[in-house]
Design a protein around this nucleic acid. Structure first.
Lengths: 205, 205
DNA sequence: GTCTATAATGTGATAGAC
DNA sequence: GTCTATCACATTATAGAC
């Protein structure tokens, strides 16, 4: 067993448990058990629970949204960017369904602890996302290809339509699907197409 | 100090802390302190932390979504219902900004503990929400007033557009607002109008 | 109903052998 | 690097006086 292997096994177990149970709900011995090692070894590698958590968070956060946003940094036509973004974003969320809620709720509970990670993630973006979207939207409006709309409202609308069906799943299934999970799975499968069409209908003249 | 007063003080403190810190992040002594009473008294009134939590959850959950949904159980024109729903829903969320994330994340972490409360809330609804929306949408489509759209997709879209800007706030402010909170406050103030117009543009022929 | 004191257990973290 | 044993403290919950 090399050092790299053990560290990776810890991080895998830690991510799985932190994401499901949150910082406060996670026990160090549970991570150790799932990683197949001793509890003391966690501290040998990561010193404290908080440091381990921050490491996990910093690795987990960039897995979805930042990676998807790169799509806007290309010269595709705007609506094509939108289509690619929705497709890729929903795919990534679908493969990591618990991640968005984890990121949001831990960030809400511990903004101070995590602010450093967010700042770094923001610095690491190789272009100014919101400025680029602003320019794109302005140009589309000027060309008459989309209606006059605030670029940030559009941005938040698209995010909301993509991610909330996954985050709000437990409530939605009760309120709108009689807690029928199979039915909700089918529903989620059609989201990419539905979201894209919903957005396009709303912004094309 | 009457019994009612003490119980209410406990519930007020418990809701405030549980909503901000979650079940796992909350300490009983913190609730006692904030309620201005002794720790043992919490157990006298609610026996265990879990029972207190479930009481708080069952009181908090109906405060927003179920209360707003009643709007669909009226004979207003459909688009007017929609406008009222968006207006009222966003108002309630704005007055209880941490509640939706609390409900969703606790439900995700402890579905088994809370399932009873959800079932009861569902039973207590005095009409079949999703069936009513289905009928309304079908009739609107038949009359040619809105385009052909799946009623549940529309339902989830509206929910998403209303609630996600509040839930996802910490992430959105970083990704799209350079962490400028004042700017985001202004943004939220315009949501009612923006969401309604976005939805209407998308569903009217 | 309300308090103080304390029990019973859980949890993060470290010491020290190998 | 990895383990066992253990410390130091926090936390839920209860006992019992008032």
């Amino acid at each position: 067993m090399t050092e790299k292997d053990t560290e990776q096994k810890i991080l895998d177990a830690a991510q799985d448990i932190f994401v499901r149970k949150g910082l406060d709900g996670t026990r160090m011995h549970e991570i150790a058990e799932q990683a197949g090692i001793n509890k003391a070894l966690l501290h040998y590698y990561f010193r404290t629970k908080e440091k381990l958590f921050l490491k996990v968070f910093s690795l987990a956060f960039p897995k979805i949204l930042p990676r998807t946003m790169e799509i806007f940094d290309s010269d595709m036509p705007f609506l094509e960017k939108m289509e690619h973004f929705i497709d890729r974003y929903i795919s990534l969320i679908g493969s990591n369904q618990a991640l968005p809620l984890f990121v949001i709720s831990e960030l809400a509970k511990n903004p101070d602890k995590i602010v450093g990670i967010m700042k770094e993630a923001h610095r690491n973006m190789e272009f100014d996302l919101i400025e680029r979207i602003k320019q794109d939207v302005a140009e589309e409006i000027r060309q008459g290809r989309i209606i006059d709309i605030d670029h940030r409202q559009l941005f938040v609308n698209v995010l909301s339509l993509c991610v909330f069906p996954f985050i709000g799943r437990p409530v939605i299934t009760y309120m709108g699907f009689d807690n029928d999970r199979k039915e909700y799975e089918k529903f989620l499968k059609t989201r990419k197409k539905q979201v894209y069409e919903f957005v396009v209908r709303s912004i094309t003249p």
